[in-house]
């Protein structure tokens, strides 16, 4: 039985159609990656599935309950850790988990026991009585995750759980998500990081401009894209001239940045000499060259015509500086 079923889900804000008829199915016990750039409709979809926002069209069930008609039953079945860990900086970690236990209807003694266990589990026992305002970003995310688990939910929604975290903290969250999934929890994970979806998700849906543009396992999606590509860094010469040369030997893909060139390699490594020779004949030096197997970004490019991570890095970097 699917843990989440979404049919034609829509949400508009005045004239803006944020989500335009999303269809999804998430099986029990899977990790589902919901991938897309900022503003694609990921968070709006999650807010509707977690009953925080009413849909303007379509329907959805979570853990067998309708998100509009049986909203309270949905809320009893899910754990939610939303974007930008919504924690009160004046509370201590222990107070927050105890409050969450009360909100989930756990009796006092059980809430206390669960709080102790969870704080231990996410390695925050030593900091449990400190105010959250003094926690690092990684500690806040772990605390938010622990709070979402206090009632042992069937379905866990994680909205960009690692955005803004350093690589070590990110890996810690990934390990915890895998462990939870091994214990039987269905995980609905939104992310803007391709690697995160690739590493964690059994199935992935890619959303862009409020519509699902691709859905399947990461391997299936990459196989559908087919060919690898050659990524070139030029030593000298203009990119425009190199593009002209490469276009004669293979299909050009949209560039990631202003210094690299991507050429589809239909024959894999066998295409490398052709490309190098053509550039050499034109007097264009190559600084580095790499054969890249299809990634989820290639899937994204194939479906939308633009790169996901390029867009996201540009938007995420200023936030990282502020943090």
């Amino acid at each position: 039985m699917p843990a989440i079923v979404v049919e034609g889900l829509k949400r508009s804000f005045d004239e803006v159609l944020a989500v335009q008829g999303v269809d999804l199915s998430v099986e029990e016990g899977e990790i589902f990656g919901f991938l897309g750039p900022n503003g694609a409709g990921k968070t709006t979809t999650v807010r509707m599935l977690t009953t925080l926002l009413l849909p303007t069209g379509g329907q959805a069930t979570v853990a067998g309950h309708d998100v509009v008609k049986q909203a309270r039953a949905v809320r009893a079945s899910i754990g939610v850790a939303l974007q930008e860990a919504a924690l009160d900086p004046l509370m201590t970690g222990r107070e927050l988990i105890r409050l969450q236990a009360t909100l989930q209807g756990l009796p006092g003694a059980e809430g206390k026991r669960r709080a102790d266990d969870l704080l231990e589990r996410v390695d925050l026992a030593a900091a449990a009585d400190r105010r959250v305002g003094g926690y690092s970003g990684g500690m806040k995310r772990r605390l938010d995750l622990a709070a979402a688990l206090v009632h042992e939910p069937k379905v866990l929604f994680l909205d960009e759980p690692t955005t803004g975290l350093d690589p070590v903290s990110r890996k810690t969250i990934w390990e915890e998500v895998r462990t939870l999934n091994d214990e039987g929890t269905t995980v609905f994970l939104t992310t803007q990081y391709l690697e995160e979806a690739d590493q964690l998700a059994d199935n992935v849906a890619i959303i862009d401009s409020g519509r699902i543009v691709a859905e399947g396992t990461p391997d299936t999606l990459k196989t559908e894209i087919g060919n690898p590509h050659i990524q070139l860094q030029l030593a000298a010469g203009s990119i425009a001239e190199a593009e002209k040369v490469c276009a004669q030997v293979g299909k050009l893909l949209p560039p990631v940045d202003g210094r690299s060139l991507l050429v589809e390699a239909a024959n894999g490594a066998a295409d490398i000499p052709k490309v190098v020779r053509a550039l050499d004949d034109a007097g264009i030096g190559v600084e580095s060259l790499e054969l890249v197997r299809p990634t989820l970004d290639d899937v994204f490019v194939a479906k939308t015509g633009h790169h996901l991570e390029k867009d996201e890095q540009r938007q995420a970097e200023p936030e990282a500086v502020e943090a």
């Binding site: 009953t51 809320r75 939610v80 939303l82 930008e84 919504a86 009160d88 969450q100 909100l103 709070a147």
Partner: peptide
């Protein structure tokens, strides 16, 4: 302030 920092989402997402 709770609404601005998203804390009320935690409350609205609870079965209360």
């Amino acid at each position: 302030v709770d609404i601005e920092m998203g804390f009320t989402d935690r409350l609205f997402a609870a079965p209360i």
